[in-house]
Nucleic acid binder design. Sequence first.
DNA 1: TGATCATCTTTCGCACCTTGATTTAACATG
DNA 2: CATGTTAAATCAAGGTGCGAAAGATGATCA
Lengths: 396, 396
Amino acid sequence: MSRPERRTVRDVRRGNQAMLLRALYFGGPASRNDLCEATGLSSATVSTMTGELLGDTVLVEAGHVDSDGGRPRVLLRVNPGYGYVVGVDVGETQVRVELFDLGMTERARALYAVHSARHDPGLVARHILEGIDTVIAEGGVSPGQVLGVGVGVPGIVEPGPDALVRAKTFGWEAVPLGTLLRAGTPLPLYVDNGAKTMGQAELWFGAGRGTSDTVVMLIGSRVGGTIVTDGGIYRGAGHAAGEIGHLKIVTGGRPCKCGGRGCLEAYVGAEAILDRAGVVADSAEEEAALARLLAAGSPVLDETVELLGVGLSNLIHLFNPERIVIGGWAGLMLGESRLVEIRAATAANTLLQPYRTASIMLGRLGPDAVAMGAATLVIEQFLRDARFPTSVGTMS
Amino acid sequence: MSRPERRTVRDVRRGNQAMLLRALYFGGPASRNDLCEATGLSSATVSTMTGELLGDTVLVEAGHVDSDGGRPRVLLRVNPGYGYVVGVDVGETQVRVELFDLGMTERARALYAVHSARHDPGLVARHILEGIDTVIAEGGVSPGQVLGVGVGVPGIVEPGPDALVRAKTFGWEAVPLGTLLRAGTPLPLYVDNGAKTMGQAELWFGAGRGTSDTVVMLIGSRVGGTIVTDGGIYRGAGHAAGEIGHLKIVTGGRPCKCGGRGCLEAYVGAEAILDRAGVVADSAEEEAALARLLAAGSPVLDETVELLGVGLSNLIHLFNPERIVIGGWAGLMLGESRLVEIRAATAANTLLQPYRTASIMLGRLGPDAVAMGAATLVIEQFLRDARFPTSVGTMS
DNA sequence: TGATCATCTTTCGCACCTTGATTTAACATG
DNA sequence: CATGTTAAATCAAGGTGCGAAAGATGATCA
């Protein structure tokens, strides 16, 4: 049974402040009065709280708005320069490190090519650590201004300070990426699956904006996803939830890299689509090959759409989301030409009521959003307490 | 985005009291000192809070425990007689109304046979209302002592005061069961899907006890289930989540009553199993027929186990639960003879790590637990605020 | 120019919360 | 009967949000 935590009056403050900060972060500039409405707090509380946050320079004023015949309202917003966050995307071909300010404006970037054949954990960790130093230097911010580092990796990330990563693609069995990185940086670390971080990016800044029960399906060469319940990423008991790619849709079907059979990934992933269509293409050419296939048309694509509909149907029946976002480069290509058919295939397999509550849309962020999403893990924590973490706060 | 609510100091009290009450309800009798540990609250707070609750007779003393050489500790527990709850199971063949005390001891029961052919909503509502009066009278409690009525129905229950029920089995399109019942009783009403209420019963008192990320799969003639995340039933954006029975596991497979094809229910439900095995049995004989089939063995059963494994695999990949409970009369029969095979079939289709975190067990409550689970909906609310609801609180 | 009004923001006293420290209660032991 | 031990109650202190009232700031109008 879930054990709710003891609460004291200070938690009230923390919670309300987080709510106010969230309203301001996502609701753009707003006056104190607007914040009263948005948060439900009294004007007295909003006043003292904003006063405090302005004093800490977490908030800054953002101009005035005249009112008809009264005192003009002062707009407030989160100070983008109050702190900075680093997002890392550990991909198959490169390690990508980006520095963002709190407004998620990119300030610097560092890329490190890695050979897809072998991903040495030590090498990857060194790339990340060097990247962190590089973007901090290039971005012209002091290390003390950095709130933390978010890292998106393939595979499953076990919770805990070690952040054990199991990524079959890389041949990583139980790589303690957290430990490796912590040895090289004192910054708070947040490690999570890359599909989940990208899903959070879509949730915060993309097609999932404003929703709280959402499924983000990412189709690239392979298939991953994020399940959002109650406004947050659902991770399950061991941080392995949301393995959408390995949803079984064809019993005893095509073998999948995971060792199983009939996985969604073995049908609707770009690699699988091309393979089924008999197209030979190495990973660099996949995108062009899929584009050609889409232009030419193929019964394989029809089947893909059908099976994607089955997969989405399963997600709808289990999660009853208000929105489904299809992203990833292959998902976007497929969706742009076949969204109507995808919706129809889903509807054909789904009970009417839950189908109606789920609006199926395409993602709005490119495949580079993994690093950005990883950075949002840090921001998520920041919005909870608006402080520079004192101890080396860590999760995974 | 989920909008957390404003909090005041009173919410702190409410929350802490709820936590204390919960600890006492599920943790059996405990001393004030034990409660300090269990809740994390200071002894001062526990003392005042228990004092208040004792004064309201929500709690009662439950004996003493000698300590070696000191003041003996006084044990406290929730007073079972403080209030009573009614649970209703609207089934295919009968409407079942039960009265429980807070300790979930059954105090009275009323059954009403209904013809499975036609479930007139008005008739069902009249049965329920009459049942409520009957069990209250038979149980010898005054109506003022009843905290509320929980109702478990088939199909999807839309949230809202109307509690619109869509149950294809009954031919109910959008029956406003909440409205119908509220016209006949002032008691607070909680209407939900019967599989969900039964799942909650297993979670609270059965095989799911102590877990917080759990999937309960109920296999009877048909297939339903409950998904528990973070200690509570996950209902999704439109209260239609957890439709486990209509998970698609065979693309283009057997037609299902829902209108789709290849649903889990179309393979592992008792009706489907018998049908696939070529056994003709009406609903009264299903149980015996399935027992004979299990004793005799059949390739259909092997296939069933295999497909059940696929279904469970999907659930594990999506939810990463710490426990999976298989219940329902057919599920229990199947599980008792084939649990090992079911586990093996699941493992064969599942990634190792999430499979390991999920212990697959059989349910411990009989099929009659629907009404009990419905009653827990009321108790759940009671544990939140330990008061007799003043206004006609309602959800669905 | 000064009075009035409309609107936004701050201030202040109050009620309520949890807590740590202290005191009181209730037993066993010798 | 004095002493030690553990459990539970009490009390003052520090935090928190709220409602009411006051203050601030600009538009409007005589």
